[in-house]
Structures are given as C-alpha cells and as structure tokens.
C-alpha cells in the first residue's frame, strides 16, 4: 500500500539486494563452492584430520565454557545494575560495552601482558600455580572478555521492564523471596539469557584476534579452528582452507538459525 505513495521501493530494494549479494552472498558462495571442488573423499580427508578434530574440539569447548561463564556473570551483573544503587554504578554500566568497542587485538595484547609471570596479575597468580598465558585457561579468559556484553545487554532491558507489581502480588499471596524469584522472575530471564548465550557462543567460535596473543597456537594442543584455516592458507592449501571454513560456516549457520528461533520464541513468551 505504501508502494503507491512512498517512492524508491524498486530502486532501494534492487540496490540493497545487489550490494548484499556482491559483498556478502556471492563471496561466501564462492568460498563454499571452492571447498566442493574437492571430491567427497578429499573433503572428508581435509576436514577430518586428527589436527582439525583437535582444533574443532578446542574451539567448541573453549567457546562453550566462555559462553556459560558469561551467562553466570552476565545475570549477576545485569541484576545488580538494574536493581541496586552503588557508587560508580553509571561508570560500571558504561564499562560493560568496552569489549564491543575495543579492538580484539588490543584485548589480546593487554591480557597477554597482564597474565605473564611479571605482569600485573601474573605476578600474583603464577606463584600460586595459575598459568594463563599459553594455556587453555587464557583462551577461555579472552573469549569471556570478547563475549561479555551479550548476556548483560540482552537480560538488562527485560529486568528493567519486569513489573514490580508482579513480585508484589507474589509476595502478598504469600510467596517467599526464593519462590518469587524462581516462579516469577526466573522464567522471564531464561529467554534473553539463552539469546545472549547463543550470541556469545557464536562470537567466540569465530574469534581470532584476541586468542592468538594469549595462546601458543601449537597444532593439536592450542590451535583453534580459525588459526588452522590461516595456517592452511599460508601453506597455499586453498581448497583445504575453504573446506575447514565451510565446516565453521555450517556451525555458524546452525547458531544463526538457533538465534532466530530463540528470538521468535522469546517474543511470543515475552
């Protein structure tokens, strides 16, 4: 109906689709098609080597752990920022967005420097036996940093809009504080927390810049999937690199579908 009155539909849509296709869709399709120049057997041989499997495992477990930590911390931080007052609260609230704005390479550099044996935090932790640099713990730590804002920023608005009256009603009807949290508040927080979890997870799976600073990047041990792709590329194994990238893309695609389903589900229940 707008189409008759408002101008620019055809031109605008044409331009949108053309730009999207040229910059994003066609390049991605080309990359995937490159992987399928390999025969099925070659493809499997390329993406299912012990080295690649080790890389998927590390990428997946480190990202999963980081996203889980982010859900726990994110819920506490969002809750505290919405419900309590304390000195410096506004500043802490603004701090939450730092990982979105700070280049990941800078984050990697800083973290590697903080946790080495003579770094600010390493000085305390390394004598206690907590090694972070060149350890899997370090990879999880930088992934926690890069994904930190997701859960906080998805849960926060939901908590803000939660009706105080719903809790009051629960209290008047004799619910204890714990009951009212479990029955009234928690069900509302699960959908946004899940969305935040998925976003943080997806981000962590593709992360590269921050990880290479703090990890030794040694194959079989400390090599995440994106590092494996770079190493395949540097040895001019283009089709193998494309094949590994296709596996990673497939996984991202599944997560994207999950995000969309969660979004729809939370809007229906919200």
């Amino acid at each position: 109906m707008n189409r008759k009155v408002l101008p620019g539909f055809r031109l605008g849509l044409g331009y949108t689709v053309a730009y999207l296709s040229l910059l994003v869709l066609l390049p991605l399709a080309f990359g995937v098609s490159k992987a399928f120049e390999l025969s099925p057997a070659e493809f499997v041989a390329a993406v299912w080597t012990p080295r690649a499997i080790a890389a998927y495992k590390l990428t997946f477990t480190a990202s999963l752990l980081a996203a889980l930590v982010n859900v726990g911390l994110g819920l506490v931080v969002a809750w505290t920022l919405v419900r309590y007052d304390f000195p410096g609260k506004k500043l802490f609230d603004a701090c939450v967005d730092v990982p979105f704005a700070l280049p990941t390479a800078v984050a990697g550099l800083i973290y590697a420097n903080l946790y080495v044996a003579d770094g600010w935090l390493g000085r305390v932790l390394v004598p206690l036996g907590v090694e972070v640099v060149n350890q899997k713990l370090g990879i999880v730590l930088v992934l926690v940093f890069t994904g930190f804002p997701f859960v906080v920023r998805t849960v926060q608005p939901v908590l803000e809009e939660l009706d105080a009256e719903m809790e009051e009603a629960a209290a008047i009807l004799g619910a204890s504080r714990g009951q009212s949290f479990r029955r009234v508040i928690l069900p509302n927080l699960i959908p946004p927390a899940l969305t935040g979890f998925t976003l943080a997870f997806a981000r962590a799976v593709g992360e590269y810049g921050s990880v290479i600073f703090i990890s030794s990047n040694r194959p079989f041990e400390m090599e995440i999937a994106p590092v494996l792709i770079v190493s395949q590329l540097e040895s001019f194994a283009y089709r193998e690199a494309a094949a590994t990238a296709t596996v990673l893309l497939g996984f991202s695609f599944l997560l994207l579908v999950a995000i969309n389903l969660l979004d729809r589900w939370s809007r229906r229940n919200g």
């Binding site: 869709l25 990359g31 799976v205 593709g206 792709i229 770079v230 590329l233 494309a242 990238a245 990673l248």
Partner: peptide
Amino acid sequence: TLIDLPFSVSPIVAGLVFVL
C-alpha cells in the same frame, strides 16, 4: 536475516573468501 549474516561469520572466513 541475511543482512545480519556477517556477524555470524568468523572474520577469518570473511578474509579467506576474498583471498579465494
């Protein structure tokens, strides 16, 4: 959904396709 796609693609994969 397609406009959001680049957010779910690893930057390494993004770079790779242009090298390819």
